[in-house]
Design a protein around this nucleic acid. Structure first.
Lengths: 228, 228
DNA sequence: CCTCAATTTTGAACATGTTCAAGTAGGGGC
DNA sequence: GCCCCTACTTGAACATGTTCAAAATTGAGG
């Protein structure tokens, strides 16, 4: 563990280690028995620390969840980099990114509902719209900017600038669907992606039709006005 | 309180009364101090019953919330009936329905987040997608079927049949926005509605353009395949 | 090695949603 | 009038997230 400030390095090293221990224990228990059935006491015991100590590093049980989400996103980013390096066709890039998210998140599908539950609360720092999760959100949007920018897609600049945010919203919708999807092997979510992606592609091509252009501009304007 | 079965009438009358008492007390406290700060003990005490008794009528604190939601929806339905009786223009019907929902739900805006929190959980019976809330959901979709059917809108039958469900989804989106909206007097949500409604109208008119027709059919097909 | 302040750790105490075994009330059948 | 059954009511006990004052540890400076 190397940091920029050599002074605090060793000072934080111990704490950092404990933090990691608690976090990994929590994630394991979440996966093994679900979020609801995992108690803070169990996490602490299993990690060999006191309950209070867990709260020293994580303000709440939800914060442990947040940490998991960061972890998941980092993993996804890695996979995405590999995919996007090799593929230039827009639909395949988008489909690849969405499907790979499913892959990465699969082990957590069972208790993902709980994550969404907390995420939906506007006052929660975990809300994807909150100020605190802005970095995570922007990283997520950035993935879709990668998708768009490196692709063969030809679009008016205005739309192209707004598109990543729209695709992010699309993914939010897919995740919402995924959370509720209890079909075998997530077949339904996969089908949703496979049907949505070409649809998005066709929608984007429609913007060339003159009558459509105006509506698209309105949509872009609406999204833009709604953002801050 | 008159019921169809005279025999059980007086038998249930007492319980029904207690139930109402607990419910109204809970809603009042929710409004006065928010959902989170209202304890089951406080509800019970204020209603003059024991904690256990509250649980006899409502399986959980969330069920009290569910009851509130039903209440809100019934209120909205009333207002909607008035509006739709007088207005035939599609955009005004849709706008009226959406704005009146804001009006009805206003007193609960502060703690609505908590409702959404529980609603987002897929395993929760309160989830708008759950089997248990099917009646409530269908009632909600029915409102939008009213909006469409009684309007001056001219559409292909296929789209017209699917439209209420799509408008319901649109409202879900608006409610999600509303939950996170802390602007003065809900200005931002109002603006969202005022910009979205004409946009929807224009989108629907676009379906007359031949090149657009195919995409619309695909969208309808996607929505249909995703529903069950 | 000693001191001291900051960091880390502890576990008991607290708040609150929920459960449950036990009690009460009332009415129908005899 | 008594019994019994169902519906209802109770409050103490429980489970679990969270807090906090106090104790332990650490590392830098002397």
């Amino acid at each position: 563990m190397t940091t920029l400030t050599g002074v605090t390095d060793s000072a934080t090293a111990k704490g950092e280690q404990t933090r990691e221990l608690i976090l990994s224990t929590a994630l394991r228990l979440f996966r093994e028995q679900g979020y609801g059935k995992t108690t803070m006491r169990a996490i602490a015991t299993e990690a060999g620390v006191s309950v209070g100590n867990a709260y020293y590093y994580f303000g709440s049980k939800e914060h442990l969840m947040q940490a998991y989400y960061d972890h998941l996103q980092a993993q996804h980013q890695e996979v995405v980099d590999t995919i996007l390096a090799e593929e230039k066709v827009f639909t395949r890039r988008l489909g690849g990114v969405l499907h790979s998210w499913l892959e990465v998140a699969r082990p957590y599908h069972e208790f993902a509902g709980t994550f969404f539950k907390t995420a939906a609360e506007p006052t929660s720092p975990l809300s994807p719209f909150s100020e605190q999760s802005k970095p995570a959100r922007e990283a997520s949007v950035a993935v879709f900017r990668q998708v768009v920018d490196g692709s063969d897609l030809k679009l008016p600049a205005e739309l192209k600038a707004e598109l990543p945010e729209l695709l992010w919203l699309m993914q939010m919708g897919i995740v919402l669907f995924w959370v509720h999807d209890d079909s075998q092997d997530l077949r339904r979510t996969r089908a949703l992606i496979d049907r949505s992606v070409p649809l998005v592609d066709r929608l984007l091509r429609l913007t060339r039709i003159p009558g459509v252009r105006g509506v698209v501009n309105d949509i872009v304007g609406l999204v833009r006005s709604v953002k801050p």
